[in-house]
Amino acid sequence: MAVANYLYLSAILFTIGAIGVVVRRNSIVVFMCIELMLNAANLAFVTFARINGNLEGQVVAFFTMVVAACEVVVGLAIIVTIYRSRRSASVDDASLLKR
C-alpha cells in the first residue's frame, strides 16, 4: 500500500469538512466540521513527517492541536454567548451584518 493513500484520505476528509461548514446551519455542527478539517490537515502533516523522515511534521501537527483546542474553547464560548442573547444556535440567525 502506498503511503500516499493517507494523503488521499486526508483530502477527502478535508473536502467533507468544507462541505459541512457551508451546508450545515447548527453552529456546533459547523464547528465540528472545522475540527474535522483541522484533523484532516493533521493527518497530512503526520504523513509528510513519515515521508521526510523527521519529526517536524508531527511538531506542527502538535501545535495545530493546541491552537485548535484554544479555538474550540473560545468558539464555543462565543456560541454560548450568542445563544444566550438570541436563543438560537443557527448561524443564519446571526446575520446582523446585512442590516
Binding site: A18, V21, V22, V23, V30, A94, S95, L97, K98, R99
Partner: peptide, 17 residues
C-alpha cells in the same frame, strides 16, 4: 453577495480555494 449569512462567506472562501 453581502447577504449577512456567514455560510455564504464560507462558500466564497471555498470557491476561492
Amino acid at each position: 453577495i453581502q447577504n449577512g449569512y456567514v455560510r455564504s462567506y464560507a462558500l466564497l472562501m471555498v470557491v476561492g480555494a
